[in-house]
Amino acid sequence: MKIKQFKEMVGFGILRLCVGMVIFILVIILYDIISKGIGIISWKFLTAMPKNGMTEGGIFPAIVGTVLTTAITALLAIPLGMGCAIYLNEYAKDTLITRLIRMAIRNLAGVPSIVYGLFGVILFVETLNFGTCILSAGLTLGLMTLPWTITASEEALKNVPNSYREGALALGATKWQSIKTNVLPYAIPGMLTGTILGLSRAAGETAPILFTGAAFYLPFLPKSLFSQFMALPYHLYIMSTQHHAISKVRPIAYGTALVLIALVFAMNLFAVIIRYRLRKVRME
């Protein structure tokens, strides 16, 4: 009895330690970035163009660039990802081919982002002749996000009990009716949560936009979707490794990092809120 209790204590202790360590690391990183970045954050920093070879001024074009590319990513990844997931989970028969497709999707989720970048160059920049621009970069990120969106959406659909589908069919609903009115409403919160997490990951990616449209230094806003653009993660990369006066622009780099983190955090928060609200609506 005593030994059992002791083992429990040790077990829980180890688990607590794991959680503690993860939180500790997270806090350190956040503290580092916030404490070094907060000083430079001002309305001007957020809304001004960079000046003097990026040693002064703000990061407005980078914010706009990241928001625009992420919007395109969302436009591609959300409808296509949800559509694929609905097809795979609700319509596709369990054949060798669908299993292969599913396996391919899982594996695509693990492909390094730089590979997507190369693929984006070949497909969007060259073959479709969009050039290096917001559109190419957004679509590349969209492709990268798709496997995550599909997998998360399929998971959400799997969580809807089969009895909802059967119950609807037994009342004379068509297959699509049963999906539309009795499956999707309960799957969408989960689908959106997974998707937005995928999007926030895409917003922070550098490699895929590196060759497809992100520019080093453009002190003006993009004119159209076919313009090159600045982006927060790429800007951060430049400021911390490629700039001629790295130590001088350190504060700007930290400020950029802080804005990027805040943006990603806001998106994740948004996902949580959607899930919470939709869940409440459903339970009423």
């Binding site: 009990p161 009895s163 909802y164 059967e166 119950g167 609807a168 037994a170 309960y186 459903r282």
Partner: peptide
């Protein structure tokens, strides 16, 4: 042909 299932399955 209506059906009442073995496990009651009201919709949410």
């Amino acid at each position: 042909v209506g059906m009442v299932f073995q496990k009651s399955n009201p919709f949410p």
